[in-house]
Design a protein around this nucleic acid. Sequence first.
DNA 1: GCATAAACAGTAATCATTACCAATAAACAA
DNA 2: TTGTTTATTGGTAATGATTACTGTTTATGC
Lengths: 131, 131
Amino acid sequence: MTQQQQTRMTKQRMVILEELRSVHSHPTADEVYGMVRQRLPRISLGTVYRNLDLLAESGDILKLESAGSQKRFDGNVTPHQHVRCTQCGRVGDVMEPVRLPDISGARAPGFIVLSGRIEFEGVCETCASKN
Amino acid sequence: MTQQQQTRMTKQRMVILEELRSVHSHPTADEVYGMVRQRLPRISLGTVYRNLDLLAESGDILKLESAGSQKRFDGNVTPHQHVRCTQCGRVGDVMEPVRLPDISGARAPGFIVLSGRIEFEGVCETCASKN
DNA sequence: GCATAAACAGTAATCATTACCAATAAACAA
DNA sequence: TTGTTTATTGGTAATGATTACTGTTTATGC
């Protein structure tokens, strides 16, 4: 009765996924748009946003929760940590992850604490060289 | 010769600071606007934004670096940790801070890692009761 | 091929924030 | 107290990121 909602593997969705997996950067929606447009010049920005959200929902990519005015996406879904450049917002991967301490002691009135994540901050090489 | 830029303690700036210090929530600029408007009905939203930035720059308040589409502010400048409700974005204080592990081992190609911060995520009571 | 509805391109609308500017008012000297 | 200077204000327009809408296209199953 209740029709299961299908998802179709469109050309656009596939290229977005491929492009995102082909880089180690953590592009914004707009940057993904730029990458994908080289292969599909007529794709629209709305399509990029829509597919990035759908791909994140299905677990094929990550929508990063880090601070900054633009959301960033990651084609690498294996658990790892990130650094964010405080000057330009660029995000990088942290190798040799730092072990997260035991969180169970965290008391926060009015909240149920579910998880914790280390947010690294720093400066990327590009910004450092501009110093 | 070069005239030192003065900062003036205006009525608006003072009320914003007082209101922010009077609550334990971590209001957005718009929420601060709502609070302040009860005492200064003619204040403009732009004034609120401008003063929140200036007060953060001078160290009188904190501009929180946490994720979410709206920036949040904190009148409590003593170091402490925060939880963010993943449903509504509300931010709360963590009592009994969790000790941050040694960060010096964090390697991130193309980045200079300067600091790390634990980002707690959870659900606030309001959202939990809506479950 | 044909039908169906998910997804698309293009564009308008929304939301948060910033920029602009003529008018106002802190701060300080006379 | 009054005047002068200029930081700050209110009001509004502009920007940037994202979301919503809509008629058309196209992936998918029969």
